[in-house]
């Protein structure tokens, strides 16, 4: 049994990183740009289609008394709307569709990644870093558009003695510049670590034969925890975006 299980999984069962491999499904070359449709692309499409189907089908009846799915769609709407209103304010509501799309994309990518043999879009640093960098550049541009060069004052904490400005200004700038890195690495590392750990323990189940019950029980608990992490990371990603947006719009002193 044990050797069979190990053989069945082969080298893949031992290699917990195999699940993150990207494979081209359809090779597409647009001029110099490689736009191949990969398994990552497939799961991005699945994520987006699932979100659209969920949001559109559940609300297609526009019921005054909502069905379960419709109240779920309304709940997610109000959840993000309140998040934007509380963290950015009324003038931040113009960015609500973007924050909502961002939250739903990360949430559904994380959740669908929990399905066995699926692919977790957000477990790739290039994807999370691209999103974080887009947010960072957008928010920084917004800050300069709103406040002009006065946005540089954001890096000088209020009530600071003039003598300390040359010391603290670079620190503030560096901490600001690390935002996209911390934002992207947080999401990527959580997804990577969680899925790797699940894979390692799953391969133990097969390798340990009858004693595989122990890692199996552990897996059940870990899977629940991973669902929590999947939601929590989507929430953190969205709320940090709100906070950065608020900094750019209102330059609140810190």
């Amino acid at each position: 049994m044990a050797s069979e299980g190990a053989d069945g999984h082969g080298s893949k069962g031992i290699d917990p990183m195999h699940q993150f491999e990207v494979k081209s499904l359809v090779d597409i070359q647009l001029g110099p740009v490689d736009a191949s449709f990969t398994n990552a692309s497939l799961w991005m499409v699945i994520v987006v289609v699932t979100i659209c189907a969920f949001m559109l089908l559940s609300t297609s009846r526009r019921a005054l008394i909502p069905s379960r799915l419709q109240s779920l769609a309304e709940m997610s709407y109000e959840f993000i709307a309140n998040m934007v209103r509380d963290n950015v304010g009324k003038d931040g509501m113009g960015y609500f569709p973007f924050i909502f799309s961002l939250f739903m994309f990360v949430l559904f990518a994380n959740m669908l990644g929990m399905i066995p043999w699926s692919f977790t879009v957000t477990s790739h640093i290039i994807v999370t870093f691209a999103m974080a960098l887009f947010i960072f550049i957008g928010v920084t541009l917004l800050g300069f558009i709103k406040h002009g060069l006065g946005f540089i004052g954001f890096f000088v904490p209020s009530g600071l003695p003039v003598a300390l400005v040359p010391v603290l200004f670079p620190i503030e700038v560096i901490s600001y510049l690390t935002r996209p890195i911390s934002l992207s690495v947080r999401l990527f590392a959580n997804m990577l670590a969680g899925h790797t750990m699940l894979k390692v323990f799953a391969s133990f189940v097969g390798l340990m034969g009858i004693w595989g019950v122990a890692p199996l029980v552990f897996m059940v608990g870990l899977t629940g925890l991973e669902f929590l992490v999947a939601f929590l990371q989507a929430y953190v990603f969205a709320i940090l975006t709100c906070i950065y947006l608020n900094d750019a719009l209102h330059m609140h002193s810190h």
Partner: peptide, 26 residues
């Protein structure tokens, strides 16, 4: 590059559907 291209495409599509159809409806 392929991931960035498809991320941009799919997210743009998602944003347009949410901003134009789904969110106004909800």
């Amino acid at each position: 590059v392929p991931q960035l291209v498809w991320l941009a495409l799919t997210f743009l599509f998602l944003y347009i559907v949410m901003a134009r159809v789904a969110l106004p409806r909800v």
